[in-house]
Design a protein around this nucleic acid. Structure first.
Lengths: 203, 203
DNA sequence: AAATATTTTAATCATTTGATTAAAAAAATT
DNA sequence: AATTTTTTTAATCAAATGATTAAAATATTT
C-alpha cells in the first residue's frame, strides 16, 4: 500500500462494487475484480476470505445510500406529506441517475437471496414511518381517498424505477439517446408526484 | 422418446425455461437443466448445440406471450383508449400471476444482452400503436392532459411490475403472506387504470 | 540494523462446468 | 430380418474458476 493512496482493502471493495453492479453475483469472476483493482486474486481472499464474503461486504454499502435517503425523508418531521412525496422522488431519481445500474442489481440479487437482503435493510419500518402516518391522517380527514400504503409505495417506486430497469433497452435500441432518456427521467420528478396527488385528492 | 410423451426436445425446453427463469443465464448450469429434464447433458448439446443456443431457443418463447398479449390489446380497433388501458393491465397481471418470475428474468437478461432482446421483440411499434394514436387524439381534443407516450408506458408498466419485482422480498420477509400479496396485486387491476385516468382527465 | 509482522505475488490445486466422443440402444427403412 | 439412421448414454476432456500455499517484498517493532 502506497501512503496517501486509499487502502488496498478499499480499492478491492470499489472494484468489487463496480463489477458486481455490472454483472451480478453469478456473472462476476473474482479475476475480473482482481484485475479491476489491479491486484492478485490471492489478495482478494486474504482480505475477504471468499467471493461471497466480499459480496456481502459491498452489498450493504452499494444499496444503503438509496434506502438511507428515503427513510430520512419519510421521517422528516418538518415536511408535509406532499413535501415528503416530492423530496423522496427527487432524491431517489438523483441517486439513481448517479447509479443507474442499482435497480436491476437490487432486484436480481434480492431475488437470488431475499434473506440476505432483509437482514440488512429494515423495509418494515416504512409502514410505521411518519409518511404513512400522515397519509392515514389525510385519509381519515377525507382529504385523500383511502389507499393501502403498499399500493402507494409500489406505485411510486414502480414509476421511479421503470425507466432505469429498461434504460439499456431504450438507449441501445436507439429509441432514445442517452440525453433524451435523461431528460425524460428528469421530467418524472414532477410528473410522478402529480399523478399520485391528483389521484389521492380526487373523489 | 416414448410414443405419446412429449418429445425430448420439448422436455428439455420446458426444463430449460424453468431453470433459466429461476436462476438466470449466469446462475444456470447445464447439468441442472439436464437433471430437471431427466436426461444426459450430452443430449442437451445434441439438440441445441450449446447453452447459449438453448437459451435463445427458450427466451423468445418465455417472453413472447407477454408482449403478444399487450400488442394485441393496444391494437384492438374495437376498444376505446380506456378499454385498452383496462384490458392491457388486466391481461398483464393475469399473465404475470401465472408467471411471476418473468419480470426479474426479463430485466436481468435484457440488461445482460440488450441486442438479443430487441432482435426478438419490436418495442418500437408501441409508439405507432392504435393506443398511442387514441391517446394523442384525446390530448388534441383537450380531453386529456398532454403526456409523452413514454411517460404513460413507463408509469403503467412500472406500477404493474413493481409488486412482482419484490414479491420474494415481501413474502419472505413475512410482510405479507402469499395470499395477501396476491390479493393486493388483484386490486391493482382497478387501481392502476384509475390512477392514470384520473391524472389524464384532470386539468 | 536485526528481528518480527504484515502485505503481496506467482504458482498451483481442486472443483466445476460446458462440451465432445465413441459406443450402445432404439427406431425407421429396406 | 437385416441394414441404416436416429436417439441416448457413460466416460471424459479442456477450460474456467474460486481458493490455497509457500515464498518474496514491504512495513513495523525492537
Amino acid at each position: 500500500m502506497k501512503v496517501g493512496d486509499i487502502s488496498t482493502e478499499e480499492r478491492i471493495k470499489e472494484a468489487a462494487k463496480k463489477v458486481f453492479l455490472e454483472k451480478g453475483f453469478d456473472g462476476t469472476k473474482t479475476r475480473d475484480i482482481a484485475q479491476e483493482a489491479g491486484i492478485n486474486t490471492a489478495l482478494l481472499n486474504y482480505y475477504f476470505r471468499s467471493k461471497e464474503k466480499l459480496f456481502e461486504a459491498i452489498f450493504y454499502e452499494a444499496t444503503n445510500n438509496f434506502y438511507e435517503a428515503i427513510f430520512q425523508v419519510i421521517n422528516d418531521k418538518m415536511l408535509t406529506f406532499e413535501g415528503k412525496l416530492y423530496k423522496m422522488i427527487e432524491r431517489d431519481i438523483d441517486n439513481l441517475l448517479a447509479n443507474p445500474l442499482l435497480p436491476i442489481f437490487i432486484h436480481t440479487e434480492s431475488s437470488r437471496n431475499p434473506e440476505g437482503f432483509t437482514k440488512k435493510h429494515d423495509l418494515a419500518s416504512f409502514f410505521t414511518s411518519d409518511f404513512v402516518a400522515q397519509l392515514n391522517e389525510k385519509i381519515a380527514k377525507g382529504e385523500f381517498r383511502p389507499i393501502h400504503p403498499f399500493h402507494l409505495m409500489t406505485s411510486v417506486v414502480g414509476m421511479v424505477l421503470m425507466p432505469f430497469l429498461n434504460k439499456k433497452l431504450m438507449t441501445s435500441a436507439s429509441f432514445f439517446t442517452e440525453d433524451v432518456w435523461t431528460n425524460m427521467v428528469q421530467e418524472k420528478k414532477k410528473l410522478i408526484p402529480e399523478i399520485m396527488l391528483t389521484y389521492l385528492r380526487s373523489k
